[in-house]
């Protein structure tokens, strides 16, 4: 129906039911999600804890199979993980036995992203990404020697270093202090390709709990609701790009944030009640 030609990712009636191993009790984590994500689009997913955001992301990554429905990328069904879709996990999933630089270089050295690169090019790419996330000086440290925010930046650098087409990020900035967070939001937009024409941008899916972060980053915000996890609303963020800090003070920014807040407020209150 819609402009299907430009859809990078298509979720079609996607449902995910988890079956508890012993009791065989089913939990519907995600129910009937249908969503088209355009090539070069930046989509943020917000919603209360446990509404199935991570599950949707894992299915797009190919790490979980939908119990029902199909996910297409470039009109081909996704049948497993691939380096075209890079994932930044909610708990980082850093390799504890590798230093910062080796974590960042893991995919380049062992996976498909590095196949066409020489050792020197790989090295340069690692160095560039250490600088990008401002971890110069800590590149030889092990994950257990880093703070939560530093670990998160390593995970982000590892994702970006692999140069995936689609960026799947699960609360990637959640553990950062407010200042670093703002800096990295802008940085992320630059890496995604905000200043380039849409055709050259990557496709990004970004989960966050922070409504203003979603509004600042996204072309479109997906608001999810719980029990079962469904898409409750889709909002177009019509703020002009490229965006800078100034956009946060505009009236439109406030209106959009308020609208999203209204949508998830009841459930958020319910969740803590």
């Amino acid at each position: 129906m819609q402009a299907v030609e430009n859809a990078k990712l298509r979720l079609k009636d996607v449902t995910k039911t988890f079956i508890a191993p012993r009791t065989l009790k089913p939990t519907v984590a995600v129910s009937d999600v249908t969503l088209d994500i355009m090539r070069g689009e930046f989509v943020c997913i917000v919603g209360p804890s446990g509404c199935g955001k991570s599950t949707v992301l894992n299915m797009i990554a190919g790490l979980e199979a939908p119990s029902d429905g199909t996910i297409f990328m470039d009109d081909r069904p996704i049948s497993g993980p691939s380096a075209e879709r890079g994932v930044m996990f909610q708990d980082y999933a850093l390799f504890p036995w590798l230093t910062v630089q080796d974590n960042i270089g893991f995919g380049l050295r062992n996976g498909t992203p590095g196949h066409s690169l020489s050792a020197g090019e790989i090295k340069d790419r690692i160095e560039a990404h250490i600088d990008l996330v401002r971890l110069r000086g800590s590149e030889a440290k092990y994950p257990h020697q880093l703070s939560g925010g530093m670990r998160q930046r390593v995970a982000l650098a590892r994702l970006l270093a692999n140069g995936p087409d689609v960026l799947l990020m699960d609360e990637p900035l959640g553990a950062l202090d407010a200042q670093t967070r703002l800096i990295l939001q802008s940085e992320l937009l630059r890496i995604w390709g905000e200043t380039s024409p849409t055709a050259q941008r990557k496709t990004a899916i970004f989960i966050t709990h922070d409504i203003e972060e979603a509004v600042f980053l996204a072309d479109r915000v997906v608001v999810m609701s719980r029990h079962p996890g469904r898409v409750r609303a889709l909002l177009d963020i019509d703020l002009p790009r490229p965006r800078n800090e100034h956009v946060r003070t505009t009236q439109r920014f406030g209106e959009l944030s308020e609208e999203i807040w209204q949508l998830i407020r009841d459930e958020a209150l319910e969740a803590i009640a």
Partner: peptide
Amino acid sequence: DRKLVQAARTMGVSRPRILAKVVLPAAM
């Protein structure tokens, strides 16, 4: 940790290499 194996798979690392580069070091 299953997450580590999954992370390697999303970076296009082959099965045998995951065994050598993720599972073995993690079990070391």
